[in-house]
Design a protein around this nucleic acid. Structure first.
Lengths: 150, 150
DNA sequence: CGAGTAGGTTCGTTTGTTGAACTGACAAGG
DNA sequence: CCTTGTCAGTTCAACAAACGAACCTACTCG
C-alpha cells in the first residue's frame, strides 16, 4: 500500500504537490537558493538524516530540478546545482515565504530572516499577480476552465 | 521517532513546509478554493482515504486555515470554510499552478485545466513580484538578511 | 421497520522516516 | 605504511504515517 502519487495527475498543483509533499524537499531547495551545493553542506545546515537527504537529492536530479556537477576528480566528488526548472521554483518558495511571514508568526513578532533587495537593501514583499495585466490575483476574479486546445 | 516538525522553525518557508508537507493537504486546499465545502465532496473529488481526510481537515482547522460551519442542526452537520489565513494561501497555490504548468508537462502538451479571468475569459499566468516595485522577483537581485528589529 | 446518507472511527498491512552504525575512496601526517 | 580525517554516501531496525476495507452513529425518507 504505497503512498498515492500525483505526478501524473491532470492538475498542475497536484504534480507540484508530488514534489513538495516529500518531507524536507522544500527546505533542500531553499538551501540550494541560499547557495548550498554540497551534500555535507545541506546535511549540516538542515540536520537531516543522510539517507533522506540522499533520496531527496536523487529525486530532485531525476525530476530535472538539480544536476550533479563534478568538482573533484580524485576522489570523485559532485555538487548539486539548480537547473532552470529548479530555479523557476523560486516563485513558489517566495510565495511560501510571504505567506509564512504574514500568517505563521505571533502578532508583533517577525522571522529573524527577511528578503532584501541587493540594490536598495529594502525588504522585499512578494505578491502574486497576473503576468499580462499586473493585477493582483484575486480568487474571486478567477475561474477554472478547460484549456481550449487540450 | 516521529517525523521532524518545522512548525516552530525560524524560517517562514519551513513553517509553511510543515503544512504543505502533509500529504494531500495542498489538494484539499485546492478543492476548497474550487468551492468544495463538505467532507463527502472532498472525499469523492480527491478519492482520499477518509481517515486521512479527517486528519487533514482537523489540522487545517487547528491551524486556523479552515473553520467548521454548521449547515444542519438535526442531524448536526458541518461544512469546512476557508478563513482569511486559508484564503491567503491562494498565492502559494497559484505559484505552484504556474510552475506545474510550465515545467511538469511534456512539450506541446498542456494541462486540461487553466486559470481564466472571470471578466475577460483570458488565461491568467501568475508570476511573483515585489509588492512595492512591481518588479519580477529575480533570485539574483535578492538576498537574505537579518530583520533589523528581530 | 428497512434502506439510504453524511460524517466520520477502527484496524491490520504496507510504506516512509529516523538516527546510529558502517563502507569506500582518497589525502595528510607521523 | 599505518593511523586519522573528510566527503559522500549505504544499511539497518525501530517507529510513525498512509492505505483500503469494514464498521459505527445519528438521523431521514418511504
Amino acid at each position: 500500500m504505497r503512498r498515492t502519487r500525483f505526478d501524473d495527475a491532470r492538475c498542475p498543483v497536484a504534480r507540484a504537490t508530488d514534489l513538495m509533499g516529500d518531507w524536507w524537499t522544500p527546505l533542500v531547495l531553499r538551501d540550494a537558493f541560499f547557495g548550498q551545493r554540497r551534500f555535507s553542506g545541506f546535511q549540516e545546515s538542515l540536520d537531516i538524516p543522510k539517507a533522506v537527504l540522499a533520496a531527496r537529492l536523487a529525486r530532485l536530479c531525476d525530476e530535472g530540478m538539480m544536476e550533479k556537477v563534478p568538482y573533484s576528480e580524485h576522489p570523485p566528488r559532485y555538487e548539486y546545482h539548480l537547473t532552470d526548472k529548479g530555479r523557476a521554483f523560486w516563485d513558489v518558495l517566495a510565495a511560501m515565504w510571504r505567506w509564512g511571514t504574514d500568517w505563521c508568526w505571533p502578532e508583533g513578532e517577525h522571522p529573524y530572516l527577511s528578503l532584501k533587495s541587493r540594490a536598495t537593501g529594502q525588504i522585499v514583499h512578494p505578491i502574486v499577480v497576473d503576468e499580462l495585466t499586473g493585477e493582483r490575483l484575486d480568487l474571486d476574479a478567477v475561474r477554472f476552465g478547460r484549456t481550449s486546445t487540450g
